[in-house]
Amino acid sequence: MKTENKRVLWEPILEQNPIATYILGICSALAVTTALDTALVMAAAVTAVLACSSTAISLIRNHVSRSTRIIVQITIIATLVILVDQVLQAYLYAISKRLSVFVGLIVTNCIVLGRAESFAMRHPVGVSFLDGVGNGLGYSSVLLLVALVRETLGSGTLLGLPLFAPAEQGGWFVPNAFLLLPPSAFFLIGILIWGLRSWKRRQVEEAEFRIVGVEDMGWS
């Protein structure tokens, strides 16, 4: 594989992660990460939608007018999401019920439209496909990491199978119910972003404003 293609495929995982670097697609990352199985299915769904939408949009990129391009992109994305949702309802019914609206909400996932608008509209089909897959993998890696922490420490299970002996049944493990609540994912993603940016300093954004301290108010 050419180095350029490799870069497009692997960069979204650590260097340009859609969640950790660009803070996109946070909503579903909070909602579907209480268990690893839902996170896995969601990750696969988003990756499939991303890869197909980037490919399809790149295919017609030279024939879409500037004024209607967002409408066309959203139509394609929505179609793919409906297809994924229908397939999940047919073949993974239990998990699709647990994912509930969040599969449908992939339409509004900023990562998908973001890649379509900023990448697929200006690049050839092959590399657009790789970009879609790469960003899907970037999204998936954060989702799976968060879900892994939340499920193991929040319920003491892994993929639904008991991992630690819970205290209720005479074991040692006390599940932390806080990890099953949506705010915990915020903290985990926050810690993840902090860690990543401490390691890869290049991702640190310049501050847009300074938080006003007490001394600035002249109260001290």
Partner: peptide, 22 residues
């Protein structure tokens, strides 16, 4: 690309394919 005819035709083609798939 920005002519009304082409915009309409492309949009129509995209939506037809999407409708068929769904």
């Amino acid at each position: 690309n920005d002519s009304s005819t082409k915009t309409l035709l492309v949009t129509l083609a995209v939506t037809s394919v999407c409708a068929l798939l769904v």
